[in-house]
Design a protein around this nucleic acid. Structure first.
Length: 664
RNA sequence: GCCCAGGUAGCUCAGUGGUAGAGCACCUCCUUGGUAAGGAGGAGGUCGUGAGUUCAAUCCUCAUCCUGGGCUCCA
C-alpha cells in the first residue's frame, strides 16, 4: 500500500515519520506482527508496519530488557572485571546475572548502581544492533573476557547479533528502545544468588533484580501494589489474626491456634462434605512404616532425600555395636559406616499416602464391581525440605493433603479424570478463586517404570483435560517420579503462582505392589491408580486463601462469626444470655464484656475481621435483639432480633455451592 | 543446600564498645461511655545461641540456629 514510502525509507523510523506515525513515545515497530527496532531496515514485502508506543504492553519487555543492559553497563563501570551472564525481562521487571571477581553484591550497592544508570540514561545514548559473524563475535567476547557469553554463543544457532549503546556491547537478539532516554522509570529492587544456567552444580552468580515502566507514574503504582500485597501476606495476617505461629524447634512446621485450627478444620470438613457426594471413602493409615514399604514403593531411592527416617534407641545401639566390631577386611570407610547405620534406621515417616493406600487396597481381594475405589485420607505428611525453600504455610515440612487415590480400570480412567476436574472447579468457585491455570507435567528424568507406561499415563491426562476443553500448558519433565501430573495453579497476593490441586495417573505403583482385582472374566487384572488432591496441601491452600480474602474469611469459615460488644457493663448479662441462645443454634459467637468504650471494642472486633459485630445496649436489651454491623457491607445494618441474626448467619454458614437455591 | 539481608519486650520497631528504649498488647485501679483507640499506674528483655577480641560486647570477629528475598527443588 505504501510501497513508495517503504522503499524511500532507510529504516522503520523514517518510514513511520513519513507516515506521520512517529510520536515522541514510539519505541519500536511491529512489522507483520513481529517487533522490530526502529533503526532496522524496512523489510521487503512488509504488509503492515505499526508503531509501538511506550505505554503498550508489548513495549514493557523492551523497556525492561533495555534497562537491564543499562544496569549491566553501570555495574561494569563501577565494578571492573565483572562478567555478565543472562539479563532478560521478566513478568514484573528484569534482572541481570553477574560474576563479580572475589565479591558479591549487597543491597547497599544498589543506590550507587542506580545513580550510574541515571548518568547513562541522561547521556541519551542510542541502542544499535549489529549482525556479526560467529568467529568475529567469539573473538570479541573472548577479548572482553565475557566467558559466560562466549559459552552461550557456542549454543546459539543462526544469525547472531550484538547490541551497543555507547561503548557497551552485549550478545543479544533485541529489540531495544531507540536510545537510553526512553528509560525514564526504573528501580533496582533486590539482589539474589542464582546458579549459572539454573543448575546447582554450576557456579553461583549474583543476580540483581529491578523493574521498569514506561513512566514514573506507572512505576510508582507498581511499587504501591507491592506494598499493598505485603499487607496481605499470609505470614503477617497469620500473626495479626492469631491463627498460627512457628518455633525454631520445629522449623517450617506451623502451630495452629484455636482460631487458626477452627479454619483449618473448616477446610477439612468442607472437603469431607464433598466426599460423601462424590463416592469417596475416608480411611486412616499409619504415620511411620518399616523402610521396606518405601523400598517397595520406590520412595527411598527416588524421594529419600526428602524423607525423615527414624530409629529406636535399640536400633542405634545395635548399629553402634556393629560399628565397634572391626570387620575382617579392614576398617570401614565413611560409606561403609553409613551403610551399617542405615541398616538400623528401620523407619520412615510417610511423605505421601500412596504407599499405604496400596497396602490397604491389597489387603483384600478386590472385585471389578468395587471399582472405581476412591480412598480419601487427611493423614499428616512429613517431608524434609531443604532449608531455604520453606516459606510460611505455603512450603512446610509437615502438612496434610486432602489426599485421595482412585483405583480403577483403564476404561474408567478418563471418566474419573473428568469428574475430578469438575470437582476442582466446583471447589475453587466456592472459595471465589477464578484465575486457575492448568499445567500438565510430563515424565521427569528420575522416574520409575517403562516409557510405554509413561506414554499411556501422559496420554490419559492430556485426553482428560482436552475433553473438558480447558487451556493448559505442558511442563516438560516436571512430573512426579511415579507418574505425570495435571496441576492446578492459583496465585498468591504477590502474584506468585502455587500448585494446589493435582491429579496424577500412575501405572507404576500398582505394579510394584502387585495390586490386582478380579474382572468380569474371572481373571486377575492390574488396576490403574490416580493420585489426586483438590486443595492440595491444606496448609498451602490455607495460606493462599488467607491472602486471597485478605484475612476476611467468609462467614462459613470464620472462627468467630459474631462478636457481641456491650455499650456498658450494665448489659453484660443480656449479652451473655443472647450469646448462649445463638450458640445453641450453632452460631460461633463471643462476648466482649471488657470495660472499654464501645468504639474501642468495635475496633478490636474489626481488626480481627469478625464478620458480624452485635452491639448490645439499652435499646437492644429491651427489644431482645442486637445492633448488627456487617464487616463485608462495612456498615451498621441496624437492630435485628436474635432470630433474624441467627437466620442471617445460618444462611451464610454453608459454602456457596451447598446453600439452598430456592426459597419456599 | 547455595547467594544476599535480618534476629532487641507478646507484636511493630528505635538505639549504643561502658549490661537498654517507644507505641500497641498485657496486669491493676479509675471511668460505664452508643459504632475504628477514655485515663492513670505497673509488670515484662541474660538484645537468637555458643565461642573469640577487649579492662568492658546487645554493638566488633567467627561459628551455629531461625526468619525473609532469590536460585535449585516442590504440595
Amino acid at each position: 500500500m505504501h510501497e513508495a514510502a517503504m522503499s524511500a525509507a532507510n529504516d522503520l523510523r523514517e518510514y513511520l515519520e513519513a507516515e506521520e506515525k512517529l510520536g515522541k513515545k514510539v519505541i519500536a515497530a511491529r512489522v507483520d506482527g513481529k517487533v522490530k527496532d526502529l533503526h532496522s531496515a524496512v523489510p521487503e514485502g512488509a504488509e503492515t508496519i505499526e508503531p509501538i508506543q511506550a505505554h503498550e504492553d508489548a513495549a514493557l519487555a523492551i523497556i525492561r530488557h533495555s534497562t537491564a543492559h543499562v544496569m549491566a553497563d553501570a555495574v561494569q563501570r563501577l565494578f571492573p572485571g565483572t562478567k555478565v551472564a543472562f539479563g532478560p525481562a521478566t513478568e514484573d521487571g528484569f534482572y541481570y546475572d553477574y560474576d563479580r571477581p572475589g565479591g558479591t553484591f549487597s543491597e547497599d550497592d544498589l543506590a550507587a548502581i542506580e545513580a550510574e544508570m541515571k548518568k547513562i540514561i541522561e547521556a541519551d545514548v542510542p541502542f544499535r544492533k549489529e549482525i556479526v559473524e560467529r568467529d568475529e563475535l567469539k573473538k570479541l567476547l573472548d577479548s572482553m573476557g565475557e566467558t559466560y557469553k562466549s559459552e552461550h554463543l557456542d549454543r546459539l544457532e543462526g544469525e547472531l547479533s550484538v547490541y551497543r549503546h555507547g561503548d557497551w556491547v552485549d550478545l543479544c537478539e533485541g529489540p531495544h528502545v531507540p536510545s537510553t532516554r526512553f528509560l525514564q522509570a526504573f528501580k533496582l529492587t533486590h539482589v539474589a544468588g542464582a546458579y549459572w544456567r539454573g543448575d546447582e552444580r554450576n557456579p553461583m552468580l549474583q543476580r540483581i533484580y529491578g523493574t521498569a515502566f514506561a513512566n514514573p507514574k506507572l512505576l510508582k503504582r507498581h511499587l504501591k501494589q507491592i506494598e499493598e500485597a505485603k499487607k496481605r501476606d499470609h505470614r503477617k495476617l497469620g500473626k495479626e489474626l492469631e491463627l498460627f505461629t512457628f518455633h525454631p524447634w520445629a522449623p517450617a512446621s506451623p502451630f495452629f491456634t484455636g482460631r487458626g485450627a477452627a479454619i483449618y478444620n473448616g477446610l477439612v470438613d468442607y472437603v469431607r462434605g464433598l466426599y460423601g457426594r462424590h463416592g469417596y471413602e475416608e480411611i486412616i493409615t499409619p504415620q511411620v512404616f518399616d523402610r521396606a514399604l518405601f523400598e517397595t514403593s520406590g520412595h527411598l531411592p527416588s524421594y529419600g532425600e526428602n524423607m525423615f527416617m527414624g530409629a529406636t534407641l535399640d536400633g542405634i545401639r545395635d548399629a553402634a555395636e556393629e560399628l565397634a566390631k572391626a570387620p575382617e577386611d579392614g576398617p570401614r570407610d565413611a560409606a561403609g559406616c553409613q551403610h551399617v547405620i542405615e541398616e538400623h534406621v528401620r523407619f520412615g515417616v510417610k511423605p505421601m499416602n500412596c504407599p499405604s493406600h496400596c497396602l490397604l487396597f491389597g489387603s483384600q481381594l478386590k472385585s471389578y464391581r468395587e471399582l472405581p475405589l476412591r480412598y480419601a485420607d487427611f493423614g499428616r505428611l512429613h517431608r524434609y525440605e531443604r532449608s531455604g525453600v520453606t516459606q510460611g504455610l505455603t512450603r512446610v515440612r509437615t502438612f496434610a493433603q486432602d489426599d485421595g487415590h482412585i483405583f480403577c480400570t483403564e476404561e474408567q480412567l478418563s471418566a474419573e479424570i473428568g469428574a475430578f476436574i469438575d470437582l476442582v472447579f466446583e471447589v475453587y468457585r466456592d472459595f471465589d478463586f477464578h484465575d486457575v491455570r492448568i499445567a500438565i507435567a510430563t515424565r521427569p528424568e528420575d522416574r520409575l517404570g517403562a516409557d510405554e507406561v509413561w506414554d499411556k499415563a501422559e496420554a490419559a491426562l492430556i485426553a482428560g483435560v482436552e475433553e473438558k476443553d480447558l487451556p493448559y500448558e505442558i511442563l516438560e519433565g516436571e512430573g512426579a517420579f511415579y507418574g505425570p501430573k495435571v496441576e492446578f495453579h492459583l496465585k498468591d497476593a504477590i502474584g506468585r503462582p502455587w500448585q494446589l490441586g493435582t491429579i496424577q495417573a500412575d501405572f507404576n505403583l500398582p505394579e510394584r505392589f502387585d495390586l490386582e482385582y478380579v474382572g468380569a472374566d474371572n481373571e486377575r487384572h492390574r488396576p490403574v491408580m490416580l493420585h489426586r488432591a483438590v486443595l492440595g496441601s491444606v496448609e498451602r491452600f490455607y495460606g493462599v486463601l488467607l491472602e486471597h480474602v485478605g484475612g476476611n474469611f467468609p462467614t462459613w469459615l470464620a472462627p468467630e462469626q459474631l462478636r457481641l460488644v456491650t455499650v456498658s457493663n450494665e448489659f453484660d448479662a443480656y449479652a451473655h444470655e443472647a450469646a448462649a441462645e445463638l450458640r445453641k443454634a450453632g452460631v460461633r459467637v463471643t462476648v466482649d464484656d471488657s470495660s472499654e468504650r464501645l468504639g474501642s471494642k468495635i475496633r478490636a472486633g474489626r481488626l480481627m475481621r469478625v464478620p458480624y459485630i452485635g452491639v448490645v445496649g439499652g435499646k437492644e436489651a429491651e427489644a431482645r435483639g442486637l445492633g448488627v454491623r456487617s464487616r463485608d457491607e462495612n456498615k451498621d445494618i441496624g437492630l435485628l432480633t436474635l432470630d433474624q441474626v441467627r437466620d442471617r448467619i445460618q444462611a451464610e454458614a454453608l459454602p456457596p455451592s451447598q446453600r439452598a437455591t430456592t426459597d419456599e
